[in-house]
Design a protein around this nucleic acid. Structure first.
Lengths: 142, 142
DNA sequence: CCTAAGGTTAAAGTGAACTTGAAGGTCAAG
DNA sequence: CTTGACCTTCAAGTTCACTTTAACCTTAGG
């Protein structure tokens, strides 16, 4: 699989894929005789995992630390497990924070929908904002 | 409340708070006679909402479009509601994607923990990676 | 053979989100 | 009345995550 095909399959720009490789996120890529990169099928999944983890709030540096290098000398299993479990905890925290944000949004929407249909001016806006502000901490901030 | 106190309370740098103001995220801030900014108590909550929404994957530009400007001429209620509901949908999608990532991680951890304690070398790593790659799409990519 | 589409590298450019620096004003304590 | 902590503005600097550009090579098709 050439880089263009992989790009089409994942929706990522070829430049982005090469960039990830340059950061060590993809490991060593096989080359054809002409110098073209040749990817195994799994790379698409790997890229999806990378972008997904990214959207979950992890930096590319953090992601690299999680991904085992195919080309590496070997794994440090305990270290890897610790890292993975840490990320799992992070993920849970992020999800909680997301849920809180979602609750905030839902509350805000309900408040607006149930407010008097005629009075849509400044005071109303202020009241809604105040209501939202009054709610519990909701979001745990790093 | 002066900017330093607000900074301490929220854990944000004063420069960051001024930056948000410059982007129109905080609206008009009251000033004392000496020119110092003076914040009402709610601002801390507002900042927490901003950072939380940010962590949920929204840009400051998007966040501004969601936040009503206290100083603005008025609200466009239908437009606001549409925007909020769109964000809610986005949030749900992001949560689903997070859950999938979490499932991936849990699967990976289980796989590593149950693998032969002696064979912790390259082949093992490759097998784990392949297993993970084989799982369902898991992450919906933008 | 020529062309168009796609591949290669290295280096420079971009946009978002901040931070830092310079140069200065304010204020309470000693 | 000076010192230190805090405030002000504005411009410039930084980091991250890419993209774009330039110069060049490869391959398939008419």
């Amino acid at each position: 699989m050439k880089i263009g095909e992989l790009a089409r399959e994942t929706g990522l720009a070829p430049s982005r894929i090469r960039y990830y490789e340059s950061l060590g996120l993809i490991g060593a890529v096989e080359r054809r005789l002409n110098g073209y990169r040749s990817y195994p099928r799994e790379t698409a999944q790997l890229l999806r995992i990378i972008t997904g983890t990214q959207r979950a709030g992890f930096s590319l540096d953090e992601i690299r630390s999680l991904l085992p290098q195919k080309s590496g000398a070997g794994w440090d299993r305990p270290k890897l497990l610790t890292g993975l479990k840490q990320k799992l905890a992070d993920l849970a925290a992020l999800q909680a924070s997301l849920a809180a944000t979602q609750a905030d949004l839902e509350f805000l929407i309900a408040r607006i929908e149930s407010s008097p249909p005629d009075g849509d001016c400044f005071d109303n806006a202020q009241a809604v904002l105040d209501d939202v502000s009054q709610r519990q901490p909701a979001i745990s901030n790093a």
